[in-house]
Design a protein around this nucleic acid. Sequence first.
DNA 1: ATGGTGGCGCGGCCA
Length: 259
Amino acid sequence: MLRIATWNVNSLKVRLPHVLDWLRTQRPDILALQETKLSDADFPTLDFAEVGYHAAFSGQKTYNGVAILSRLPAQHLVTDLPELDDPQRRVLAATLGGVRVLNLYVPNGQAVGSDKYLYKLDWLNKLNTWLATELSQHPKLVMLGDFNIAPEDRDVHDPIAWAGQVLCSEPERAAFRQIIAQGLTDTFRLFPQEERSFSWWDYRAAAFRRNLGLRIDHILASSVLADRCHGCRIDTAPRRLERPSDHAPVVAEFNINLN
DNA sequence: ATGGTGGCGCGGCCA
């Protein structure tokens, strides 16, 4: 059995106790983190070793930053999209026990039409090109992380208010569908889910208490793995803690053995 | 209520 999870922690320095507690109780084989906001020299490798996890990371001060925590050591790390010379640390790929894991912190995009939005669309285009290469080399592949895209209206608490806005705009959704069209499956939608299931809630306006959220964190699986997926859920428990991340972890399980 | 909250780091950016 393989249990793999993704969690945008919005500062690993602040959220380290939450992440350590969650690892101790949930025991995933792999946890992909986004928005660590730490330079690599400051990564708390020893704290994770004490609870039985290896750590691979690609970080920077203040912004962005991705990491993979795993029971098995990570091999064949990749930290950049091909053809994108980018100081922003948003990508970490690794192979774990024969499974290729692509951990992403997709750009937010700020507002439709902004420079950051154009950067996001260009980033997603280059991501799609890279995905084709990775899929050709790795039949057992999981792409997961904070996609900053709500793929469908049912992933949005108020689709009318959000129509055409960043995270929901048609070009972003088209880029997501292009990823899916390469043969990946949104594991969350393989199973019956509660209506109004979300993975992110704004800190403002008591959005979590009112469940005014978006589902923008995803675990996508190649066909070999999707056929063996037997569950995917959003764990809202950490979002209820004191000083939480604005995102909840998403967890998927597969009937495969790591080798 | 065109604001609101949170992280970083100490003014303003980013989400």
